[in-house]
């Protein structure tokens, strides 16, 4: 057994250098040289300051912004240093209560809107950082945003279309709207609300 332990220790050290040091260092070096934007978090800048990542959502509560999906991270939503889902089970009464509360908030911000609420807009995402909403969830909010900003609804919908990604290769994944970038574009188009 002692002989095995000795061989095991030597091999463990050698493989640690290979897989735990050289491998991540080489990958990092190539990534940082060839793809620095992606490797460092796909940051978005506005006026020379970073205002988020194209891949990480932020919380929005004003009527003039498109709202992101509910987030279950703590202590605040969209805490990108503590990703988390709600882990609420399908029969947990707290799930139904939370959904009813979110529907009420959406209705209160947009009293004239009688269409049913798309499910992704009232359910929390797996990461709590989902940067996307469904096109249905964007359409649900388009008139509210236009009204709050005094913008032409057609102009708002055109911007939504601009920030909508289709399925990759027309097949993979789901169509989705990039909320943070869309809201930044709205600010740029019409000034902050």
């Amino acid at each position: 057994m002692w002989r095995h332990i000795k061989t095991a220790t030597i091999l463990y050290l050698v493989l640690t250098v290979l897989t735990g040091v050289l491998y991540p260092l080489v990958v990092t070096a190539i990534a940082q040289i060839a793809m620095p934007a992606q490797a460092n978090g796909s940051l978005i800048e506005r006026g020379g300051r970073p205002v988020g990542s194209t891949l990480i959502g932020q919380a929005f509560t004003g009527p003039g912004y498109f709202w992101s999906r509910p987030s279950a991270t703590g202590p605040m939503p969209y805490n990108a240093a503590a990703s988390s889902g709600s882990n609420l089970g399908p029969t947990n009464p707290a799930l139904e209560a939370a959904v009813r509360e979110r529907i009420a908030a959406l209705r209160a911000a947009d009293p004239g809107n009688l269409s049913p609420v798309p499910v992704d807009l009232v359910t929390s995402s797996g990461s709590g950082l989902d940067p996307h909403i469904s096109p249905a969830a964007a359409e649900f909010q388009a008139d509210r945003v236009a009204l709050a900003r005094g913008m032409d609804p057609a102009r708002v919908r055109a911007l939504v279309g601009e920030y909508t990604d289709g399925r990759t290769f027309g097949l993979l994944g789901e169509p989705r709207v990039r909320v943070l970038e869309l809201n930044l574009a709205l600010d740029a188009a019409a000034g902050a609300p």
Partner: peptide, 11 residues
């Protein structure tokens, strides 16, 4: 316009 279904905990 949407995937629908059970979206709680999904991206």
């Amino acid at each position: 316009m949407q995937a629908g279904g059970n979206m709680e905990g999904k991206e």
